[in-house]
Design a protein around this nucleic acid. Structure first.
Lengths: 212, 212
DNA sequence: TTAATTTTGTACTGATTGGTAAAATAGTTT
DNA sequence: AAACTATTTTACCAATCAGTACAAAATTAA
């Protein structure tokens, strides 16, 4: 196992001993992320990955462990990428604004032609063989974590008074997450940004809006 | 290719010439359907399929062609199974009732513990390798066909007056389909019927309701 | 310069993938 | 009974899967 795991810009500026790595860890991981995004965990073969990453298999295994660990690092990068919108949306001032930013963000991002359609958290491993079960479970856990965060945000909104006293944070969060994930399937179908935007706007009509 | 393709109850009661088939085509197809439903097209291996179907590979190939054709026959059966709810929902008298039946039907059916969670049309092949592309495309086409049917139903509803004159059939149909497919992901997460029902009810609040 | 260390490219592994060849078997037809 | 036909069983095929052994290469440390 290497000393610096995934830190391309290490503080230690003295070059490490041994032959230097000929590729950049982050850009290679980004390429792997895009392959997984397009083909899913099991649909992405090692030749698919190594070709996109511009490295060969021993380099991949030395740097990332194995295919499963590479995938887990890819979804971690996915959630922290600059254009990620879900968790940043929590900081909006009202529940409605949170819901709006999530769904409009998904409409734009899931149909962005600069990367594969849809959401990696959904496309990655929805149904798979027995050997993919652990990765599928990891994605389920991540999706549930997002849901729980949204429930908490809506509970806070209820306490803050920007959601009605009779609002159901659990139900509303479940609804927003469901539309979010449905938009991922729509994007796979080839829907463009305008169509997804239209769907998001329709969904938002079901969301309680205390003030405009 | 066999004379009787998929007709277990043939009108011709004289036994066909040759060694009789030792299994029932429909029940074998049903078993294959359930494997695909659980694991997806590529996640279902031939041993997975033959074991569930209770036959061996040459029997599978003789009866169904190959894995891809077996899958296509499985999704055809899926759409015509007794508990299918999507197309029958079109016959409801109003657009709202159509939307309601689709979403409540999905809430119940996608979480039915008697079969795998979610919808085969979504779980079957959302993201896959290059070799699964044709099956993925077939599922996209089926999903789009369902969407188009719903658009037409809502356009008729607009003409009938049970949708407002300013209603957007395309947008409304896209929204209902999106929630429908999102519910499939939720079911994969392990959501129970009550949770899906709650989400469906929330979604229906976004749907124009001319009369109760 | 030599030793130590790490990555690289090549070639390989055993297991599994979808698919099939061929003979044995179970029926109908003549 | 003999001929015919279709299915079953067993054994196999080439291709691909994820993963690795090993030696050459490239760097730092001594």
């Amino acid at each position: 196992m290497s000393a610096n795991t995934l830190n391309s810009t290490t503080c230690n500026n003295s070059a490490p001993v041994g032959r230097p790595r000929a590729f950049d860890l982050e850009t290679a991981l980004q390429k792997a992320l895009e392959v997984f995004w397009q083909k899913g965990y099991e649909g992405a073969s090692l030749p698919d990955l190594t070709e996109a990453m511009g490295i060969n298999k021993p380099s991949l295994y030395a740097a990332f462990g194995n295919k499963e660990q590479l995938f887990l690092k890819a979804i971690e990068r996915y959630e922290n990428r600059p254009s990620a919108f879900f968790y940043p949306s929590m900081q909006e001032p009202t529940a409605y604004r949170v819901a709006e930013r999530i769904l409009l963000g998904a409409a734009a991002e899931h149909s962005n032609p600069q990367h594969p359609p849809g959401c990696l958290m959904v496309q990655g491993a929805l149904a798979c063989s027995d050997s993919g079960q652990s990765v599928k479970d990891a994605l389920i856990a991540r999706r549930k974590a997002g849901f729980e965060q949204l429930v908490q945000r809506f509970e806070r909104a209820k306490a803050d008074g920007d959601l009605p006293a009779d609002a159901d944070p659990q139900g509303l969060a479940g609804f927003i997450i469901t539309v979010l994930q449905g938009l991922s399937v729509q994007a796979t179908n080839g829907a463009c940004t305008d169509q997804l935007h239209n769907i998001a706007r329709t969904a938002l009509k079901a969301f309680p809006q205390t003030q405009a």
